[in-house]
Design a protein around this nucleic acid. Structure first.
Lengths: 336, 336
DNA sequence: CTGTTAGCGCTTTCAG
DNA sequence: CTGAAAGCGCTAACAG
């Protein structure tokens, strides 16, 4: 068994509580005593027993992060941002992946690990938007990602509609008039797809471009493969297109790939813009324009809000909307 | 405060230990008693208090995973594999990122979180190969990644040398004769760079190709940016090259990008192969050939070995070498 | 088959 | 300024 506080206390010839006080930075301790204790800790290589402390304190210093998967670039990068935000605040992160599947999300919300995390950051993809009551849990929770109206929890989200609108406006400003979008989802009510699609429609209206249902292509999930398939469908049906707004960068990569395979030149024949601004985007061929959704900002705000709740803050649930930015690259550098 | 076992016991009109027995699947319990207890648990929405159980049991059911970063595709995918392996064995994963920096690795090895994890999976990038004694820790440990000779712990690694050798052999078999490699590191002794470089040299010898120091390009860290820079250097110095073996896919992507920017045609003028076989590889332009290092196998073996150690297994430290596979794609489909 | 009991290692009043 | 003592919620002998 490993070293306990009792042994440290014996070695330093003080009481257990004094050791505890030293460890927790209690102010009024004679320097000599403190030094003796610290020496003993050092010599014995003592580390606090977290479970014991937790049992006492009721806190673990660890938060949970539940997201769809780590193997998709955006989530990997997002998790990285969260890790760094957490690390700088000296808290640990227990990650669980849900595959954006309802069942797994429910499991995670109700998992025994919730007892060893002080709170949870959850990306509820897989839940229906009306299921807000499922998010009414007995522990601090911050919801990330698509907007769930009336969720009984803090919510940090990206500017889905506004970003999408800016992306499409950017295409329109480059002279594109037949702008397709990839990633619509049937039946979805208030998820990212719906919000981004709304931005798409708004931008068309702003630019005075006509709507055409043929230009709205369904894709689910949002992967390289479905992006490529969507383009394949568009081309197979002979639909006139001069630009594509893919609702995420993975689909955009699939689209670029398929366009190239079919000999369609990007950006001059078809311009392409994505959403997420993953790190790879500027290295694609051609470099992919995208919407940067403020990943670090989202991660930091989310962690801070969660910590505030854990610390006992009881204000009304808040909604934070991160800033977005249009990243213009070669894939939309149209010359006509 | 949340529901305790005591309350469940009172409600079910049994003793605390009976509740505990039910929860832990103790065999000899009268069905009626069990039913009463389960009903009480259900009604009260009881969940075990993990810290308390841990304090008693000495185990947490959580393992740590320390790796350089999550935002690089390979690590994101690898973490995903570990998560899934862990999930199917009903254990949690606490991730920490080290930035492949010595200081952070040491912190992680000695962090208080080690008390809430039953063991650690560590990618020790950042440590020098002679520092094996730093890995002599008082908890179950499995080392991942480059080979550290004589490490006092189990070790799961990919076939660095063999994979690199196969990659270069593949290029040679396509008729390439001036094969450059990107990612050498000065001063490194036994890391992935050294091992992959060794495979490169072996393959040249096998193919009867002459060595040329100009063809070995340094790059550190292994990112898109350094890959691009390495190619820039190669071209700027006017070095005759007809193929590139990038020591990972991130550098390969950077290389593809830079080659394209400079109007060099891949694969016909210069063939390119990477290492890692990340999910994006087949969507790059052109689709990137690569070495698949057996990611899932590594993750599963590592988790299993760690769990065995946690369960008290005391055999000599073992070394597991995962299988690799050459993934041939367009970027090496040379026609000459 | 079920209950009693003794801690696991730590923090936190409360005395001294 | 330091120590004694009372648990946090749970499990694991051991009795009954």
């Amino acid at each position: 068994m490993s070293v306990t506080m009792k042994e440290v206390a014996e070695r330093a010839e003080v009481s257990i509580s004094t050791v505890s006080n030293v460890l927790n930075g209690y102010a009024h301790i004679r320097p000599k005593t403190r030094a003796r204790v610290e020496a003993a800790i050092e010599e014995l290589g003592y580390r606090v027993n977290m479970p014991a402390r937790q049992l006492r304190i009721g806190r673990t210093g660890v938060i949970g992060l539940a997201l769809p998967e780590l193997s998709l670039a955006y989530w990997g990068e997002f998790a990285d941002s969260v890790m760094r935000a957490a690390q700088s605040r000296e808290i640990g992160v227990l990650i669980e992946v849900t595959d954006a599947c309802r069942k797994r999300v429910l499991e995670v919300l109700d998992s025994p690990y919730r007892r060893i995390t002080d709170g949870l950051l959850v990306v509820p993809n897989g839940l229906e938007p009306h299921e807000t009551d499922l998010l009414d849990v007995p522990y601090p929770l911050v919801v990330l990602g698509e907007r769930i109206f009336g969720a009984p929890a803090d919510h940090v989200t990206m500017a889905n509609t506004e970003g999408a609108r800016a992306a499409v406006a950017h295409l329109a400003s480059r002279g594109c008039r037949r702008i397709a979008t990839l990633g619509a989802r049937e039946g979805e009510v208030m998820g990212s797809a719906t919000l981004r699609l709304r931005g798409y429609h708004e931008a068309l209206a702003d630019a005075g471009l006509p709507e055409d249902p043929d230009l709205v292509v369904t894709a689910n999930p949002w992967t390289r493969a479905t992006g490529a398939a969507a383009v394949r469908e568009l081309l197979a049906r002979g639909i006139d297109v001069d630009a594509i707004f893919a609702m995420n960068d993975a689909m955009a990569l699939g689209a670029l790939h398929e366009l190239h395979r079919q000999g369609v030149e990007v950006p001059n024949e078809v311009a392409v813009i994505g959403f997420d601004d993953i790190g790879d985007a500027e290295y694609y061929e051609p470099a992919l324009s995208s919407i940067a959704p403020g990943r670090d900002e989202i991660a930091e705000r989310a962690v801070d809000m969660l910590l505030a709740r854990i610390a006992g803050e009881t204000a009304e649930p808040r909604l934070v909307l991160a800033d977005y930015q249009v990243m213009e690259r070669q894939s939309t550098a149209v010359r006509r």
